[in-house]
Design a binder for these strands. Structure first.
Lengths: 230, 230
DNA sequence: TAATAGTAAATTGTATTCAGTCTTTGTATA
DNA sequence: TATACAAAGACTGAATACAATTTACTATTA
């Protein structure tokens, strides 16, 4: 995809990466001018990238009010995680019907990479954890399934940024290797169960934080510092 | 979605509708200039609509070569139909876990509409057949699932335009009512089976036509009109 | 002091403009 | 006759410019 204009792609890609890696947090404004300056391109070019990110659900583009990083609600979060369960179940089911050899090879290479950067480079570690799921989807050979998984994994990052306190990527690696083991054993049911459990864990950690704080709504934050009856 | 610019939405929507209804056939060029004139907007505005349609897979946007209606390959067609089976299975599963009453009510209203325009208004009939599936997805209450189904149903229209000889929408209505009946009976398995069978039928009819002709390749078409040894 | 109205600044929406690339057509040459 | 090359035209890529809207600030008033 994204065969379109040459100049807007880097803008799109950088913004996307920044959002996924939570450098740009939910609610942050994305003014066309300043972004254009950053990348030395015109607003026209920036806009085209923003339109695309809006279509993917990572950016919220409102008429006359510009773009900002999407702020998923708790309902959307649940919706997205449920959809993710569906898509990744499909991935596992398909993989288990295929020749396991090349799949396992690719997965193990990736897992090694994950382990390598664990406790070394947090940002990279988190990215790799997400890419594990995208790799799984790509290995099915289905372009459209891979696209959907890619999109939904990105949106889950956004949810994490919004609701989770901090994210420990460590637990992920062990669970990833268990999924691989299940595929290797040819046990489709166990693989599916492992994946389900894994995603459940991610969701639980993501949505643990109960207070639905709006990170850009200053008054809501300040309200917690008001001493009652003082 | 599409909270963005006011002026580009009508362009996006019209193009989308025209593609789905097969007025714009796969491979047709979509020059920014002429589209802009049609809608009395600038190329800038048209472009933003095209970027979005490209993201949805209905339009193919190539650098320096402009936009054209996407031409799905037979491989993509199979991929998309397989994905559609997955998504609609999910829809059925979710609906069968919900309160059937309001769902059935909405479905029956829609089915009546389908029957009303059958053999009367072919274009409308085809649109309603597609919207039945979108309605099912919307009734799950999942925004993202509905979006995905919406997108994939559109792309199936494109596949039909590309590969099917002609489309008879009639068979669809009967099968739709059978799906509704299964839901009404509370028989989740049968509902799923009916849906699977229905989509299989659509796919078979769509991909029946074996000759992978390129509709915009004039020479290939003309070649068939050359009288040999004349 | 708090609320409101009015004005200025900032930001977006959209058209226009210029530059660059591809396609086509015409012409010359082998 | 076929091929290669060249110029013209058409179209897209992207920046700039102008209009419209929103936001921020200030002053005024209750």
């Amino acid at each position: 995809m994204y065969k379109s204009s040459t100049r807007s792609f880097p803008v799109y890609d950088s913004l996307r990466q920044a959002i996924i890696e939570q450098a740009l947090k939910p609610g942050v404004k994305l003014p066309e001018d300043s972004i254009g300056e950053t990348f030395s391109v015109s607003r026209t070019t920036v806009r085209s990238a923003l339109v695309r990110l809006d279509a993917e659900g990572l950016v919220d583009l409102q008429p006359n009010r510009g773009a900002s990083v999407a702020v998923p609600t708790i309902e959307e979060a649940h919706d997205i995680f449920e959809m993710r369960q569906c898509l990744e179940r499909e991935v596992i089911e398909r993989l288990c019907k295929m020749d396991a050899k090349p799949i396992l090879k690719a997965l193990k290479v990736h897992l090694a990479e994950e382990k390598k950067y664990l406790d070394v480079d947090t940002t990279r570690s988190i990215r790799l954890a997400g890419e594990f799921h995208i790799l799984l989807a790509e290995l099915t050979g289905s372009r459209i399934l891979a696209n959907y998984v890619n999109e939904i994994v990105s949106r889950c990052s956004l949810i994490l940024a919004r609701f989770a306190q901090a994210h420990s990527a460590k637990c992920g690696v062990d669970e990833h290797s268990e999924i691989i083991a299940a595929i290797e054993a040819g046990d489709a049911d166990r693989a599916a169960a492992q994946m389900h459990q894994h995603l459940d864990g991610v969701q639980d950690r993501a949505l643990l934080n109960p207070d639905d704080q709006d990170k850009d709504d200053v008054s809501a934050i300040l309200a917690r510092y008001v001493t009652p009856n003082a």
